[in-house]
Design a binder for these strands. Sequence first.
DNA 1: TCCATAGTTCGATATAATTCGAACAATAGC
DNA 2: GCTATTGTTCGAATTATATCGAACTATGGA
Lengths: 100, 100
Amino acid sequence: MREYRHPQINEVQLGSVLYALSDPIRLAIVRQLAREGEATCAALENGHPKSSVSHHFRVLREAGIIKTRNDGTSRINELRTTELAEVFPGLLPAILAVPA
Amino acid sequence: MREYRHPQINEVQLGSVLYALSDPIRLAIVRQLAREGEATCAALENGHPKSSVSHHFRVLREAGIIKTRNDGTSRINELRTTELAEVFPGLLPAILAVPA
DNA sequence: TCCATAGTTCGATATAATTCGAACAATAGC
DNA sequence: GCTATTGTTCGAATTATATCGAACTATGGA
C-alpha cells in the first residue's frame, strides 16, 4: 500500500490542529496514542466502522498530529509529539492534561 | 439589550474551545483581545460584516472563551483568561504563543 | 493460488457551520 | 420624539463535515 503524505512540521497550521482535536473521536484516538505510544488503526476503532475511523486518521495525519507507517497489512500510528512541541510548545501537553 | 448567557467555567468543554479557536477569524479576535485586554465588537470587525462578526462572538461566548458585558450601545469583550487557566491550564498561553 | 486480515476509497446521505443582507432592538444625545 | 450608533436575530444560500456500507487494494500465510 502506498505511503502517506505527512506535512512538514513547519507547514502545520495551528487552526488545523485545533480543528482536528475538537472532535471527540479524534481526541480519544490521540489520548490513547499518548498513553500507549503507538497503535494500529484497528486497536483504535472502539466499535466505530472502519471507514469512519479511517477518515478520522486521515484528518489527524493531514493536520500533522500523527505519523503513520506501514507494517505488513497494518498501519502503525504514533503522535508527532516532539515535532509538535517545536512549533506549538506546550499545546499538546495542555490538551492531554485535561481529564477525559 | 438583554444579558448574555455565559457557561459556568466547569461546564466548558475542551472540544468546544478547540473548535471555536480553530477558525481564523475567531482566533484573530482572541489574539487581539489578548493584546488589548478588552474591546468592543466594532473594534474587532476588521472589515467583516457585522452579522458575521456577531456570529463569531457568539461562538466564542458559548464556548466559554470570552465574557461580554453591556456598556451603553456597545458590548465590551474580554477573555476569560483566569478561569480558563483553572480548567485548561496552559492551553490558552500555548495557543497565544504561536506567532500569527 | 486461495483466503483472511487491515485499511483505504468511493459514493450517497444527513447534519452542521459560514456568510451576509435585511430587519429589528436598545441605548445615547439632541 | 427623532436620529445615529451598536450590535443581534432572521432567513436563505453555500459550503464543509461526519457517517457508513460496499467495493477495492495490499500483504501474509496455508
